[in-house]
């Protein structure tokens, strides 16, 4: 998972991971914004605009104009995630959609497992709806250690994907890698 290529067709791209995945999503949003409109749906309070600006400044003389291409909205509970996707789906969306941390609110202890499952199924229904008009990129984090059973949510999302990247945990690599000695 060195880089996420810019999407070429209306496919669902899923990226599973922590801060590395987040960084890549932010970079991706910036690059997409250079080409035209982008929708950023932030489901985990993760879409910090400042790294996007920094990336844009490397790529263009006019980061403000590119930034204005990004339409963003946030959802803080899984009910809001569902409502946000439904609302976005009801518009004629033709630009790429980048969804940050889709499952964050599904890991909330106040949400019952079966309720989460039901809401996620409905949310993924809307994601499929979005694919009719545009490519969709989704990032998800693995569940916190308190809810290992919610890894099933991640699998559910991955099962929908046309392409799925999984960020490797450093220890899980299993292969000895020579790191830099001095950084």
């Amino acid at each position: 998972m060195d880089a996420i290529r810019l999407p070429t067709s209306n496919q669902l791209y899923v990226i599973v991971g922590g801060s590395g995945a987040l960084q890549r999503m932010l970079t991706l949003a910036a690059r997409l914004a250079l080409r035209g409109g982008v929708w950023v749906l932030d489901c985990g309070n993760r879409a910090n605009p400042l790294p996007v600006v920094r990336e844009l400044r490397r790529l263009t003389m006019d980061p403000v104009r590119a930034l204005a291409n990004i339409q963003t909205a946030r959802a803080f509970t899984c009910y809001q995630v569902l409502a946000l996707l439904e609302q976005t789906c009801s518009r004629p969306v033709r630009e790429p959609v980048v969804i940050f941390d889709l499952l964050a609110s599904f890991y909330d202890e106040s949400v019952r497992y079966d309720e989460g499952q039901r809401l996620l199924a409905a949310a993924l229904g809307h994601v499929r709806g979005l694919l009719a008009g545009a490519p969709v990129m989704v990032s998800v984090r693995p569940p916190p250690t308190d809810f290992p059973e919610r890894a099933a949510f991640v699998q559910r999302v991955c099962a929908e994907a046309d392409q799925c990247w999984v960020e490797e945990a450093p220890s899980a690599a299993g292969v000895y890698q020579q790191g830099s000695l001095w950084t």
Partner: peptide
């Protein structure tokens, strides 16, 4: 019973 109201989309510029 459950809040479902979500933020209206806006440009990232206005978020900043």
């Amino acid at each position: 019973w459950h809040k479902q109201q979500v933020e209206q989309p806006r440009s990232m510029l206005s978020l900043i």
